[in-house]
Simulated scan of single mutants.
Amino acid sequence: MNTVNGIISEIQSHEGISLVKVKSHDATFSSIVLDTPETSGYLKIGTSVKIIFKETEVIISTDLHSNISIQNQLLCRIESVKKGVLLSEINLIFEQQIIKSIITSKACDQLDLKKNDNVMALIKTNEVSLSAHD
């Protein structure tokens, strides 16, 4: 599981659902939360949270300027590529932190991913969870 620290910077709520923006260094993550500031104590601007997402939910793009609907777009550098028969594990460096992505080895070959390549890591908003710091 990938975990990144951040601070809540914006909250929009409607009918029991919140779209939460979380600032982490120079990036802003978006997350959909099935709570509101009225129903969950940690949903406050300025609160430190953990941003959590699965390795299998990290999409990799070699197009650094793609015009797509995915809000969470992180410019990263590939630290390592570990190719398996079916799946490959890509370690990405984002803000001096490792983010892992697991993609098919076929996709890894098609993208010709190599150490030190710059790539865009993409994570759909509904795949990002938030947790209050302990």
Score class of each variant (00 low, 15 high):
residue 4 V to L: 15
residue 80 S to F: 03
residue 98 I to K: 11
residue 87 L to C: 09
residue 131 S to H: 08
residue 82 K to R: 13
residue 26 D to T: 03
residue 112 D to H: 02
residue 132 A to Q: 11
residue 23 K to Y: 00
residue 63 D to N: 15
residue 95 E to P: 00
residue 116 N to S: 15
residue 108 C to G: 04
residue 91 N to G: 03
residue 111 L to Y: 04
residue 63 D to L: 08
residue 97 Q to W: 00
residue 49 V to Q: 09
residue 112 D to P: 00
residue 24 S to N: 07
residue 122 L to K: 04
residue 89 E to I: 08
residue 1 M to T: 08
residue 30 S to P: 03
residue 119 V to E: 03
residue 86 L to E: 04
residue 6 G to F: 07
residue 27 A to W: 04
residue 119 V to Q: 02
residue 123 I to Y: 10
residue 46 G to L: 06
residue 54 K to E: 08
residue 121 A to L: 08
residue 9 S to T: 15
residue 127 E to G: 05
residue 100 K to F: 06
residue 64 L to N: 00
residue 98 I to S: 09
residue 83 K to P: 03
residue 75 L to R: 14
residue 15 E to K: 14
residue 93 I to G: 07
residue 21 K to Y: 11
residue 85 V to T: 04
residue 1 M to H: 08
residue 118 N to Q: 07
residue 36 T to A: 01
residue 65 H to S: 13
residue 63 D to E: 13
residue 95 E to I: 01
residue 92 L to Q: 05
residue 126 N to I: 01
residue 88 S to N: 09
residue 41 G to Y: 00
residue 13 S to W: 10
residue 47 T to W: 00
residue 129 S to N: 15
residue 115 K to I: 06
residue 48 S to T: 09
residue 124 K to A: 10
residue 45 I to F: 02
residue 86 L to F: 12
residue 68 I to T: 10
residue 104 T to K: 08
residue 104 T to F: 02
residue 100 K to R: 14
residue 7 I to D: 12
residue 74 L to H: 13
residue 70 I to T: 13
residue 65 H to L: 14
residue 60 I to R: 01
residue 36 T to W: 01
residue 97 Q to D: 03
residue 58 V to Q: 05
residue 1 M to S: 11
residue 37 P to C: 02
residue 128 V to L: 08
residue 5 N to F: 13
residue 53 F to A: 05
residue 15 E to F: 11
residue 76 C to S: 15
residue 108 C to Q: 13
residue 85 V to K: 02
residue 31 S to Q: 00
residue 86 L to D: 05
residue 88 S to I: 04
residue 36 T to E: 02
residue 132 A to N: 10
residue 36 T to R: 01
residue 71 Q to K: 15
residue 4 V to C: 09
residue 5 N to I: 09
residue 28 T to R: 09
residue 8 I to G: 06
residue 79 E to C: 11
residue 56 T to D: 12
residue 12 Q to M: 13
residue 6 G to N: 13
residue 61 S to T: 10
residue 46 G to H: 05
residue 124 K to D: 07
residue 121 A to H: 04
residue 56 T to W: 00
residue 106 K to L: 15
residue 26 D to V: 01
residue 87 L to N: 14
residue 61 S to F: 12
residue 37 P to A: 03
residue 85 V to C: 01
residue 92 L to D: 01
residue 20 V to A: 06
residue 114 K to M: 10
residue 82 K to V: 15
residue 121 A to C: 12
residue 99 I to G: 06
residue 80 S to T: 11
residue 117 D to H: 03
residue 41 G to Q: 10
residue 34 L to G: 02
residue 112 D to F: 04
residue 39 T to E: 02
residue 47 T to R: 12
residue 28 T to L: 06
residue 114 K to S: 05
residue 121 A to I: 06
residue 74 L to P: 13
residue 76 C to W: 11
residue 85 V to I: 12
residue 66 S to A: 09
residue 100 K to N: 11
